[in-house]
Write a protein that binds this DNA or RNA. Structure first.
Length: 847
DNA sequence: CTCTCCCGCCACCCG
DNA sequence: CGGGTGGCGGGAGAG
């Protein structure tokens, strides 16, 4: 992140970012050379054409007729605020490098191009300062990493493209736009192809399928892996590792196993990749490796695979005589693959501590259960930084007691992918609603157990969730879920997720650094959680961990007020929203958008996003969640409620009333809710609290990035407790500025940071006002988190934020709240949250 | 030092 | 043949 930030700055100071991309080609580094050509002509580069920088500025998307999607993506991406910035950064990273190179080039005589060394020398001679600058700007290796590149690549396409939309990927184009050599794109595409996210349609042409079939693919791979007895193989290898003596003995555990090499096996029938089969086995090599690698995870109980084991297995499979010399090469390839898989949020880097020491390994954080529905809604984070961090910073260390791997609670695995704020996801409809709820419930349940504490929030929430399930109409369902996490949050979310994730070991997450996770620690996961999750439907797991987070958040902080916003602008998402402190997840963003759009629609403007809105509405209906198909859910799901802010009536003690928009009720299906409270769809908030929020002020939708411009960093985000939850009138919103001047300032400075800060703050604010009941289940953990944030003097980096969240989560509730209150709340929630009650609460808080 | 993994040579394949 | 692919491993950055 840091790097990115810097880069961003640099970018800003520099010429337009677009230029970077454009310049890339010009820079004509080795990598770029191809690019330039390709730019000219997507399919076949026109060499004769002179490189025109100006035209390059245009940026690829438009140029590329082949991939319509790109255009969309781009648009979305660029407009954003914080997120946009991130993206820019990311995209800029490589380009930036190029830019730098370019500069160098300029300095040096053309003839010298050949000799890099010479070049650099000359540079030095020319201008030390310039050189220094370059050095500073010079992207680190990381910035050029395949993982980052892959993220950028993924950011271009929707994770779940509409069935109708066919996206064609032109390798040349992509290479150009990403500012890399095409060769690198092959690496990415091959891995993606192995998972059927893309398929090759023609020379230089791939078609993007997205993650729709990922569950299916994973299922197939899992089956194959089981057939291959990979698990056994791994166990053998592990033993070997542990007991070198045995080494010789176990050699080929693969006996009996069908030859995994057989391409056919790997090539499960998938409509997606028609042409792939035609490729020579050689061609498939990387693909096969990738598939096998994934299989190892899928069959592994621990979901952790060390590179050496994977490499050995692969080597042995591919060669009768394991050639150790190949080991190094194999590992290299595995890193390549792992980078891509990490970008896909399917795995994350960890370290396994064995007797001999630490070993690089990767842990599967993707969906564990893909058996049921095909719904798998992981949004790929487009934030390279986040993922990167994960890989590096977050890498956790897992102690392998020995060959025996501790089964990780995969299902619960917190590590689960976070939805990244990927641009793609945003415009995509995602079955978040359901997911969210289900996830939330699951999470809630899990949290307490994990923490070992009766998480105030967690427990109560969990209970609530449970209750809801039983009840015809879950309160939660009734409650409108409005989520408008600021773009920054998205980024954060990723981090948070990790931290929060129980599986990863809450402890580890909280630690922030790579903490070691021992199997023993993990135990909490247990069946309980699993059961719950299962109940909820595997879906959740498959779908999005992020959602889970969201859910949690929701739990904690019930609702966020959504302001009607422009539906269409995905970009907008970033800016306006409200945010709950911790919870925002990318999906939510999507939802939010949908909501916003919906709201608009209600107001009279029809929006394309309508469907989206419906989706988010769903969250409320827990039961509904079960539905396998996202779309169905979305359609079914009640529409989210929108609240209208009503000036505080004199009668109310400084309480502001939020009324659900007419529309929302219907859509939401709140009426259905058994709870009377639900039916009432208003929320009372302490006016003071609201006053702080810009949100109230802005019924209009803030521009995408407009937020930045707006005086208040976070405009429009208002969160309030959901009645259903029991804590009714909590106003969570917290304009960071209000509460914490510092935070507010920070945001302004750094857009990315802003979001997060504001979010965190919100809880605090509410607290400070007293409007929010500390005890309220909803808030439980949050407050703490918020507080922490505030405390942190340093600008919040995603990382830090993450930590905080984690802490919150785990830290908990106890500290914050009054157990009694919690209970009380819990009960309340159960019994019913009535409007009155809410009022009371709110009033009390106000008072 | 080890871990990572970027980079790009060059072989293979296809049209 | 020429261009698309991508295997492969040297070598260097990062820690």
């Amino acid at each position: 992140m840091e790097v990115n930030c810097l880069t961003l700055k640099d970018l800003i100071s520099r010429p337009p970012r677009l230029d970077f991309a454009i310049e890339d080609g010009e820079n004509a580094q080795k990598e770029n050379i191809f690019v330039d050509l390709s730019r000219m002509a997507p399919k076949t580069p026109i060499k004769n054409e002179p490189i025109d920088l100006s035209k390059q500025k245009i940026f690829t998307p438009e140029r590329n007729p082949i991939t319509p999607v790109k255009l969309v993506d781009r648009q979305q991406v660029e407009p954003w605020t914080p997120t946009a910035n991130l993206k820019i950064l990311i995209s800029a990273a490589s380009p930036d490098i190029r830019d730098r190179e370019k500069k160098k080039e300029l300095f040096r005589p053309i003839e010298n191009k050949d000799d890099v060394f010479t070049d650099s020398l000359q540079l030095d001679a020319v201008d030390d300062s310039a050189v220094d600058e370059f050095e500073k700007q010079r992207p680190s290796r990381k910035q050029k990493s395949l993982g980052l590149l892959c993220q950028k690549f993924l950011a271009r396409y929707p994770s779940y493209p509409l069935s109708t939309e066919k996206t064609t990927i032109s390798l040349d184009e992509v290479a150009v736009s990403l500012g890399v050599e095409r060769r690198r794109i092959y690496d990415i595409v091959n891995v993606l192809e192995s998972l059927h996210l893309v398929s090759r349609v023609a020379k230089n042409q791939y078609s993007w399928h997205g993650r729709h079939s990922l569950p299916k693919t994973l299922r197939n791979l899992q089956r194959l892996g089981e057939k291959q007895k990979y698990e056994e193989q791994m166990a053998h290898l592990q033993q070997k590792e542990l007991n070198p003596i045995d080494h010789k003995s176990g050699e080929r555990r693969r006996d009996g196993c069908p030859d995994s090499q057989d391409p056919q096996l790997l090539d499960f029938p998938e409509p997606d990749c028609p042409s792939s089969s035609a490729n020579s086995r050689k061609d498939k090599s990387l693909k096969i490796m990738s598939q096998k690698f994934v299989m190892l995870f899928l069959v592994s109980k621990t979901k952790i695979v060390t590179l050496d084991v994977a490499a050995k297995i692969l080597i042995e499979e591919s060669q009768d005589i394991p050639d150790h010399s190949k080991f190094k090469t194999k590992v290299r390839r595995l890193y390549d693959i792992a980078n891509v898989l990490t970008s896909l949020m399917l795995i994350k880097k960890v370290h396994v501590t064995e007797d001999r020491g630490r070993k690089p390994a990767f842990k599967w954080i993707g969906p564990v259960d893909f058996s049921s529905t095909g719904v798998y809604s992981l949004e790929i984070g487009s934030l390279a930084a986040v993922s990167r961090q994960k890989m590096e910073d977050n890498s956790e260390t897992v102690a392998f007691a020995s060959q025996n791997m501790m089964p990780l609670p995969s299902s619960l695995d917190p590590a689960a992918p976070l939805p990244s704020p990927s641009v793609d996801s945003e415009y995509r409809v995602s079955p978040l609603c359901n997911q969210v709820l289900s996830a939330a419930q699951t999470d809630l349940k899990a949290l307490p157990a994990q923490n070992g504490v009766n998480g105030q929030g967690g427990v109560s929430l969990a209970s609530m969730a449970l209750d809801v399930e039983h009840q015809p109409q879950p309160l939660a369902a009734a409650q409108p879920l409005l989520y408008v996490p600021p773009a920054p949050l998205f980024m954060l979310c990723g981090g948070l997720q990790e931290g929060l994730s129980p599986g990863s070991g809450s402890g580890s997450g909280s630690v922030g650094g790579g903490s070691e996770v021992t199997a023993a620690e993990q135990p909490p996961m247990p069946s309980g959680q699993k059961c719950l999750s299962k109940e909820r439907r595997l879906q959740e797991e498959e779908e999005e961990p992020a959602t889970k987070r969201q859910c949690r958040d929701h739990e904690d902080g019930p609702l966020s007020l959504v302001m009607p916003k422009k539906p269409s602008d995905s970009a907008d998402i970033a800016s306006p929203k409200t945010s709950e402190s911790r919870a925002s997840a990318p999906h939510e963003d999507t939802h939010m958008n949908g909501q916003l759009s919906a709201a608009k629609a209600v107001s009279g403007k029809a929006t394309t996003n309508g469907f989206v809105s419906s989706e988010w509405g769903n969250p409320c209906s827990n039961t509904e969640i079960e539905k396998p198909s996202e779309e169905n859910e979305s359609t079914k799901g009640p529409s989210p409620l929108q609240y209208l802010y009503v000036q505080p009536p004199a009668g109310l003690n400084g309480l502001s009333v939020l009324l659900p928009s007419s529309q929302s009720p219907h859509a939401v299906g709140l009426p259905v809710g058994p709870l009377p409270s639900l039916s009432i769809q208003y929320m009372v908030l302490p006016s003071p609290t609201l006053s702080g929020f810009p949100v109230l002020c802005s019924p209009t939708m803030p521009g995408p990035v407009s937020s930045a411009p707006s005086p208040l960093p976070n405009v429009g985000p208002v969160n309030f407790g959901l009645p259903g939850l029991g804590s009714t009138a909590h106003l969570l919103i917290g304009p960071a500025a209000m509460v914490n001047p510092k935070s507010s300032t920070l945001p302004s400075t750094d857009p990315q940071l802003q979001g997060p800060c504001s979010l965190h703050l919100s809880p605090v604010i509410s607290r400070s006002h007293g409007s929010v009941q500390p005890g309220s289940p909803a808030y439980g953990s949050l407050p703490a988190a918020t507080v922490k944030l505030q405390q942190s003097p340093v600008p919040v980096t995603p990382k830090s934020i993450r930590c905080t969240h984690q802490e919150m989560f785990f830290k908990t509730p106890g500290s914050l709240g009054d157990p009694v209150l919690r209970r009380k709340e819990r009960n309340q929630s159960r019994s019913s949250s009535s409007a009155q009650r809410r009022l009371e609460i709110s009033s009390g808080g106000t008072d």
